[in-house]
Structure formats: structure tokens, C-alpha cells
Write a protein that binds this DNA or RNA. Sequence first.
DNA 1: TTATATATGTAATGCTTGCTACAGAAATAA
DNA 2: TTATTTCTGTAGCAAGCATTACATATATAA
Lengths: 205, 205
Amino acid sequence: MENKLRDVRRRRGRPLSFDREEALERAMLLFWQHGYESTSVGDLTEAMGITAPSLYAAFGDKKGLFLDAVRKYTSGPVTAQQIIDNAATAREAAESLMMAAAVGFTGQNTPSGCLLASAAISCSDAALDVQLALSTIRSEIESRLRNKIKNDIAIGRLPKGTAAAPLAALSLAVIQGMSTLARDGAKRPKLIEVVKAVMEAWPSR
Amino acid sequence: MENKLRDVRRRRGRPLSFDREEALERAMLLFWQHGYESTSVGDLTEAMGITAPSLYAAFGDKKGLFLDAVRKYTSGPVTAQQIIDNAATAREAAESLMMAAAVGFTGQNTPSGCLLASAAISCSDAALDVQLALSTIRSEIESRLRNKIKNDIAIGRLPKGTAAAPLAALSLAVIQGMSTLARDGAKRPKLIEVVKAVMEAWPSR
DNA sequence: TTATATATGTAATGCTTGCTACAGAAATAA
DNA sequence: TTATTTCTGTAGCAAGCATTACATATATAA
């Protein structure tokens, strides 16, 4: 079997003068902080250290760059999907998800809050598709958690009468809300207390 | 005592050609839907039915108009402060507040979600003061609820060991989160279920 | 070498932004 | 009437927006 690194043929024309992933990382951080519409292409090129034509050649347009940044954001060290799937129980899945949010929203080297929860909450009609893209991601996480809860009910790990949808929606609502709390200045311990508090809403252990 | 209506002297120059409160109402609805920065002055003048010079004469500038719109939003039929103050218990205050949110975020003749929670979540540096204004309002509601909870603990209506701050923060987080859920298409019954679910987190009745 | 492909830097595109100068209109006060 | 005050409509401001045309630079392929 060939060495993968050696297998990578050089492209034909002039090579990129910048590290694509590093530039994308910087764009992501800017979108995270200021949101989609309030971040201008000028802001982006400055932060990424490249000129506009390079940006457009590498990422298509502002919208494409944003969606790429979202992809980078959601494929970090631990994804929501992994957290849910790896949890032993639905209860644990919800708690881990919210705890990861509490920690991720209060990082020292990243903007406060959540990119998915804050980058396109309200926008102009021109950005409705971007808004929808984020909304879809949020809904998928909620749906996955809801299914996990339903499963635990089905196998008797949660009481038969438990309402799955409200618990899943509540978890997502708390995550969205913690994003705003973090943006408003709430520190990590406070968010962790919020998670502990909301876990009391689950059926008695 | 003079009749107040007769007491209102006509102003000296040419009278306003539009109803100030009605125009402000329309501006509020537009800000509610699209947020502060994504609503342009052009959008506003069109919706308000007036020209730019009239807008600037009546409201100062875009920022002044927005803050006036926020004032109108927060001084509606029932304010958060009234809900908290009129509630018999802290528990009731939190529940009423969240229920009012669930209803208010899913009105038929208004945009989905909450103006305070969505109009300036992420913005450019130029709008940081607007962002701060909304953040301050949110914090004041949280603070008022927290004090109500502390009082109930002090008079023995809630268990001595109850943590007031997390319950207040959780309530606000759920409200912010429900705003996003509503914007994502959640209907009123779903939000009401979320409120019922989170109330289970309160100390046993 | 020459041809081809890709990326870059400069500079500009047309459009939208928030805002306002200015002249005229419409009211009250003298 | 005349003066004064206030608002309106037209028209336009400078600045910023996302995007791109174009010439040039730098790589591989023939």
C-alpha cells in the first residue's frame, strides 16, 4: 500500500500561499463572536491574513465560508452526536451534552456562547438560508436526544409515563439559554450550577 | 383641576403627519423579526410609512428608535416586573414568567420569539451599546427573580438549602432558549410542555 | 521551452448603508 | 399680514458592503 503522504500529488498551478484550515479557524472565531451578518468580508480577510480574491477562490463566497466554518465548529474534538451516542443512558446524554455546552461556552481562548446558538438568530431575508442551516443542526441534536429518551422509556430505564419530547426540548432550550447567559458574562461555575439544577427535573433516580 | 386633554396646547410649527405610537409599533415589530443590525433604515421607513427625515426628527437616529421600540416592548400589557411582584410565591413567579414567555413568543400577530432575546445577540462593535442595553434588561429580570427566591427561602417557604441563583438563572436560560425554539418553529403547546418539565426541577411541593 | 492551470495583488465594480442639506409646506404667535 | 416654528419631500452625501475584472506570478505537464 502506497504511503498516503507521498500519494498526494501537487496540484497543477500556483500553490496556496496560506494554510486553509488555519484561515478557516480564524474565520470561525470571528463568526462565533460577531455572527454571520455582522461580520464583514473586510473583517474576515483582515483576520485571515488574505485578500478578498483569495478568500473567494478558496471558499466561494461569504455564505460558503460561513457554512465551512460551521462545519469546522461542529466537527470539533467532541461532537454532540458522539456525546449522545456514547452516553450509557438518556439522562447521562442530556447531562453530558449540557455540561459540554457549559464548558464550551466559557472557554478562555474562544468567544463566549455558542456559534450555532448565536451566529444567525435574527437576520435579514437575504440570510434566511443560513438561519435555516443552523436551525436544522439544532433540530437534529434535539431529535437525536429525544430518540435516546424514547428508547430509555421503551426499555424501562425511564418511567413509562415520561414525556420524551419536553425533556429533549428543555435540554436544548437550556443550552441555547446558557449561550446567552455566557455572552452576558456568566462564568463557567454558574452555568454548571444551572445544569445541575435542571437535571432535577428528570424522573427520580 | 384643569382637564388634562384641554391642557394640551398645540405645538407651534407644522404638526406631525403620522401617529408616533403607531409608527413606533411597526418599527418594534420589524426589529422583533429581523433584529437591530439586520433591519435597515430603509426597511423601517417603508414599514412606518414615513420618510427618513421624519424618522430622524422624531426618534433621533436608528439607535434611538430601537431603544424606544424596546421601551414599548417591555412596557406591554404585562411586564416581567409585574409578573414577579404580583406572584404569591417565587415558584409561582418563575412559572408565570415562563408561561407568559411561552405564550408571548408564539403570538399569531407578532414575530416568533422574544425581541429582548433575539434582536442583538451577536453584533458588530458599533452596536455593543445596544447589545449591552438588552443584556442589562435581562440581568435585571434575573436579579428580581433571584431576590424573590431568596425571600421565599428566608421565610421558610422554600427549603433552607435551596440555591437561589441557579434556579433564577435556569428560568432565564429557559426563557432565552424558548425564544430560539419558537423561532425554529416550535408551537405554543410544546413550549408550555417545556415549562411544565422545568418546573419539576423545583424543590418538592 | 512552451502550454496550461491555479493563485495573487491591485483596483474597481454596482449596491446598500445610515444620515442629512435644503427648500418648501403648514401650523401658531405677534 | 408677517414672523416664527416645526415638519415634510426630494435628493444626495460619504462610507461601507460583497464581489470581481484583470494583469501578473508561480506552479506542473508536455
